[in-house]
């Protein structure tokens, strides 16, 4: 690739919370670099600091110490409004519980980030439709969340994450509320996205899910315990194989 700047370059991140009189060190010096197009899994038990790391990487929180460059820009000291713009333009979020607006059509849910980006109505509709087609929901544009299955809801959420053409997608336990078969389909969708050049950082506590990524980072006690590349398993093939198992 011509552009060698890492998409994400975090140095010596520390985060300390004060719970009453006690200081809790959620992150104790985490350094992490992710290149463009990587599909990274962040693993760890609860309390390992992986959620705190994701909040900082997602520009939802600021580190106590350390620097964080996102697409070459130092973002660890930006104010709330500037962080909101970064989240809107550079990042896409996928959550465990989908976080779709109830009683609102799939199309309108996907249009939401573009409203805050100031995209005009016609263009919003066009791009939202395309994003939904990309995740295989071209025929469900007008369905509201309660008319969709869990997997379909997560696809809408992914469409919402990619519709702004972000550089980085942060997925927080995206398969946590889904059954195994649907999980595989969602992971396959992520692998498709990675193939188009989008960088994905995924938080999970399921080792088999982590197996579908290029690189696994294990967090423990606020530090990176290990960080190694791997050859990913093809989720599409796994999903197809799964489909042949009699129910």
């Amino acid at each position: 690739m011509a552009d060698e700047t890492p998409i994400l370059d975090a140095r010596d991140l520390e985060k300390t919370y004060t719970m009453g009189t006690q200081a809790v060190h959620a992150l104790r010096g985490v350094s992490l670099t992710v290149q463009r197009g990587e599909f990274v899994a962040v693993m760890g038990t609860s309390g390992s600091g992986k959620s705190t790391l994701m909040n900082i990487l997602g520009c939802l929180d600021r580190p106590t110490k350390g620097s964080y460059h996102l697409v070459g820009r130092e973002v660890s000291r930006l104010d709330r409004d500037e962080l909101a713009d970064i989240r809107n333009q550079v990042l896409g979020f996928v959550f465990q519980s989908f976080n779709l607006l109830a009683r609102t059509s799939a199309l309108e849910n996907v249009e939401l980030p573009m409203i805050y980006a100031g995209v005009g109505g016609r263009e919003r509709r066009r791009r939202a439709t395309r994003a939904l087609e990309q995740v295989g929901l071209g025929d469900r544009l007008d369905h509201t969340p309660n008319q969709l299955s869990g997997g379909q809801m997560q696809r809408v959420a992914i469409a919402r994450a990619i519709v702004t053409e972000p550089k980085l997608i942060l997925a927080d336990e995206p398969t946590g509320n889904l059954d195994s078969k649907t999980s595989l389909e969602i992971i396959a969708l992520f692998q498709d996205l990675r193939a188009t050049g989008i960088t994905i950082v995924l938080v999970t506590h399921e080792p088999d899910i982590a197996g579908f990524t290029d690189r696994v980072i294990l967090m423990r006690d606020g530090k990176v315990q290990y960080d190694r590349p791997q050859t990913p398993v093809d989720a599409r093939a796994a999903a197809d194989a799964y489909a042949e198992v009699p129910a």
């Binding site: 909101a84 989240r87 976080n99 919402r160």
Partner: peptide, 16 residues
């Protein structure tokens, strides 16, 4: 509250 959180995550400023 969750809706507000989501809106903020996807780019809504406090003023929005």
């Amino acid at each position: 509250t969750r809706e507000i959180g989501l809106r903020m995550a996807i780019g809504a400023k406090p003023s929005d």
